[in-house]
Simulated scan of single mutants.
Amino acid sequence: MNPPTGASLRLISLVLALAGPMTDALAAPPGYQVELLPVPRTGAYATTASAIDNSGVVGVNYANLKNYIESAAYLCTPAQCNAIPRLHEYPKFPRNSVYALNDAGVATGSSDDLMGEGFAGHGYLYDGSNLVRIPGFDQDGCGGCSLESVGYGINASGHVVGTSRTAKSRTRAFFFHDGLMLEIGYLGGHDSAALGINDSDQAVGYADVGGTDDIHAFLYRNGRTKDLGTLPGGNYSAASAINNRGRIVGWSNLAQNGLMVPILYKKGTMAALPMLDGATWGKALALNEADWVVGETEVAAGERHAFLYDGHSTYDLNDMLTADQRAEWTIEQAVGINDLGQIAANGRHRTSGAVRAFLFSPVAAGAAR
């Protein structure tokens, strides 16, 4: 990740206060200021965070719950949300999503676009003013058009990984840079997806393993794809993110077709992360350069809690809420953590069931929450 740019005085103060503790895991997590991110629209809707950059900007997706089709993408801080434009304004049920950000303020995701005489979703690069289309793989016989694509990860150079459909309706992982689409992540099977990329163009995701029913996490680097395998006894794994130190997080099962547990892969070894007490499954979704990991677990039937792992212990993000916040919200999923320790998360209202995006910002010991 690039060093933070354009940070507010509040964030600069956080860096100074936490510069020592963030270099190594703490015995206990710092206190957090928990903020509900702004609501960009009104009506029956959900807002979900998808990513966070080092200046504390959060990618937020809006979904209209009346038609379950209309969606919009925003870049949000606690002060305001700015909309990401669409590649094409389809008037009836417009769709737009954001899935990843880099520290230069460039976003990627999926947006409405024209394809031949119809509509499709294509990945994009958006730097705050310019919107660039990421084509899917070429489709034979359609006059130069391309199939659907989605950008799921972006690095400091603006290189993007994600998925694109093929002419045979398969889904394949791609690496997009300098206008070129490269297929990656092939493990001998039919389908694959790339979910994360670091500044060295190392990409991770998951793919079908040829000749089996297995799905395995993969690492793509220097033009080659490596099968990362699974935890002992498992047949399914996926890698969701990789940092600049080459550490990888994701999830794997422990037995064939069994429940998933969060994993950390480093130095050639995959290990399960400790889960919250009583948790039955979990997924690690993101990590920062200090190897702090966030994700989600199920702690009871139908009840999910977001977690933070600091290298020694796993903490429930709900324990970081004030009493009033905890009475109103359950934080179910943490989707991103930056190098300031800020966390992008999603919570569900205990009464209405509404889902909203949250920002967790660490505060110095003894500071007001």
Rank of each mutant, 00 (worst) to 15 (best):
T230H: 07
H312C: 01
T351V: 15
N96C: 09
A167S: 14
A63R: 15
N244S: 11
L180T: 15
S71Q: 12
V57Y: 11
L125T: 09
R348S: 08
A7S: 13
G56L: 09
E117I: 14
L231V: 06
N2A: 12
W281T: 12
T212D: 02
T280V: 14
L18G: 14
C76P: 04
L75C: 05
G223K: 07
E296I: 10
Y186H: 13
P4L: 03
D191P: 05
V335P: 01
D138C: 02
L180Y: 12
I215H: 08
V261F: 04
Q33W: 07
Q342F: 08
E183N: 07
D319I: 06
Y32V: 02
Y265M: 05
T171R: 14
L18Y: 10
L101W: 05
H159I: 03
N67R: 07
A255W: 12
L317Y: 07
P274K: 07
G153W: 04
C145V: 12
L276R: 03
D199K: 10
I184W: 03
T163E: 11
E35F: 05
S361G: 01
H190V: 12
S192R: 05
A73D: 06
N243P: 00
N257M: 11
K66M: 09
D201N: 15
E303K: 15
T225E: 03
Y309V: 00
E183A: 14
R304F: 11
M320N: 06
E328K: 15
G233T: 03
C145Y: 13
D319C: 06
M275F: 02
D138T: 13
D310V: 02
I184G: 01
L16E: 11
A27Y: 08
R369M: 04
Y186W: 09
V60P: 06
D201C: 08
G250V: 01
R41C: 03
V15E: 12
I134G: 05
R221P: 00
S8F: 09
E298G: 11
H216P: 00
P135I: 04
V98A: 00
G282R: 01
D291N: 14
L308Y: 10
R224Q: 13
A63V: 14
S97R: 15
I248K: 01
A345P: 02
D103Y: 08
S97C: 02
E303A: 09
T297M: 15
Y265P: 00
T166L: 00
N346A: 04
S352Y: 08
E70H: 08
